[in-house]
Simulated assay, not measured.
Amino acid sequence: MGKGDKKTKRGKINRGTFGARRPRIKKKPSIETKISVDKKAIVKQ
């Protein structure tokens, strides 16, 4: 139950793999992607 064990979190870190014990962290979308830069505010005159 250590670095050599495939089923433990420490073993997954040692091997550099992912699984149920150590899922991949998904990146959150940045603020820039939420607000589209192409659409500019229309100025009322």
Rank of each mutant, 00 (worst) to 15 (best):
M1V: 11
G2E: 05
G2A: 01
G2F: 00
G2P: 04
G2V: 05
K3M: 13
K3S: 09
G4V: 14
G4L: 07
G4H: 11
D5W: 01
K6M: 09
K6I: 05
K6D: 15
K6E: 15
K6A: 14
K7S: 14
K7M: 10
K7H: 11
T8V: 02
T8C: 02
T8G: 02
T8N: 03
T8Q: 00
T8H: 01
T8A: 04
K9P: 09
K9L: 10
K9G: 11
R10D: 15
G11A: 03
G11D: 01
G11W: 01
K12F: 10
K12V: 12
K12L: 15
K12G: 12
I13Q: 09
I13Y: 04
I13C: 00
I13L: 07
N14S: 12
N14T: 10
N14Y: 11
N14K: 12
R15M: 10
R15T: 05
R15C: 06
R15W: 00
G16A: 04
G16L: 00
G16K: 00
G16E: 03
T17S: 05
T17V: 06
F18I: 13
F18L: 07
F18T: 15
F18C: 14
F18K: 08
F18D: 13
G19C: 04
G19E: 02
A20M: 12
A20C: 06
R21H: 10
R21M: 14
R21P: 10
R21S: 14
R21W: 09
R21G: 14
R22L: 12
R22D: 15
R22F: 09
P23R: 05
P23Q: 01
P23G: 05
P23L: 01
P23A: 05
P23T: 03
R24P: 09
I25F: 02
I25W: 05
K26C: 08
K26W: 05
K26H: 08
K27E: 14
K27C: 01
K27N: 08
K28R: 12
K28Q: 15
K28I: 09
K28W: 11
P29M: 02
P29V: 02
S30T: 08
S30H: 04
S30P: 02
S30I: 03
I31P: 03
I31V: 09
E32P: 06
E32S: 03
E32Y: 02
E32K: 12
E32D: 14
T33G: 01
T33H: 05
K34E: 14
I35H: 04
I35E: 07
S36T: 07
S36G: 09
S36M: 12
V37T: 09
V37L: 12
V37Q: 07
V37S: 10
V37P: 04
V37H: 11
D38Y: 07
D38H: 07
D38N: 14
K39F: 10
K39Q: 13
K39R: 13
K40I: 11
K40N: 06
K40Y: 04
K40M: 08
A41K: 05
A41H: 06
A41Y: 07
A41M: 13
A41L: 08
A41G: 01
I42K: 02
I42P: 01
V43A: 04
V43L: 12
V43Q: 07
K44R: 09
K44C: 06
Q45F: 02
Q45M: 07
Q45P: 10
